[in-house]
Simulated assay, not measured.
Amino acid sequence: MDMDDVVDLLDALLDGVTEPRLKLISADEARALMVLLGVLEGDGQPEEIRRAAGDMRYRISTRLA
């Protein structure tokens, strides 16, 4: 999978995370997903990946609050 595929996947996931779908995963699973997205926000990743991961983490965190 190349970086364009990863960006497309993150964009699709970000668009697909609606509140009803988020409720399908447990709070523990959501926290684990946020940790994995945090890795994608690391300095070693391209800007597009970091931005998409950050957006997704923000959306999930606001729904967990």
Rank of each mutant, 00 (worst) to 15 (best):
A12G: 09
Q45W: 05
V35A: 09
S26F: 08
K23C: 08
R57C: 03
R57I: 03
Q45I: 02
A30T: 06
L36C: 05
D8M: 06
V7W: 00
L10N: 02
M3T: 15
L22T: 06
G44N: 12
L36Y: 06
M1F: 10
D2H: 05
M34F: 04
L40T: 02
R21G: 07
L10H: 03
P20M: 10
I49F: 00
E48L: 06
G42I: 03
V39Y: 11
D8Y: 03
E47A: 13
E48S: 15
Y58F: 14
L33W: 04
G42D: 15
D8T: 07
R51G: 02
D5I: 03
R50L: 01
A32W: 06
L36M: 08
L64N: 07
A12S: 09
E47D: 14
R31V: 09
Q45M: 15
D11H: 08
D11E: 14
A12Q: 07
D43E: 14
R59T: 01
G54I: 06
P20V: 10
M1T: 08
A30G: 11
T18Q: 12
D8L: 08
S26W: 09
G54N: 11
L40V: 01
P46N: 07
R57S: 12
L36K: 13
R50F: 01
R59E: 01
T18D: 15
E19Q: 14
A53D: 01
D15Y: 02
G54S: 14
D28I: 09
M34R: 13
T62E: 15
T62L: 14
L14H: 13
E47Y: 10
V17D: 01
E29T: 13
M56F: 08
M1N: 10
R59P: 00
L33M: 14
R63T: 08
M3W: 06
G44R: 10
D43C: 02
E48R: 14
A65C: 05
A30F: 06
Y58N: 11
G44D: 15
A53G: 05
L37D: 03
G16K: 03
R63A: 13
L37R: 05
Y58R: 14
D5T: 11
R63S: 10
V7E: 01
T62W: 09
R50K: 15
L9P: 00
P46F: 05
D8F: 02
V35I: 10
D5P: 00
L37F: 04
L24Q: 14
R21H: 10
I49G: 00
L10A: 04
R59F: 01
G54D: 09
G54C: 06
G42H: 10
I60R: 00
E19P: 15
G54L: 07
S61P: 07
I60A: 01
L24P: 03
R50W: 01
D8V: 01
Y58E: 13
I60M: 00
R63I: 11
D4Q: 11
D4F: 01
G44Y: 05
G16L: 02
M1C: 08
L9F: 07
R63K: 13
L13C: 06
A27S: 13
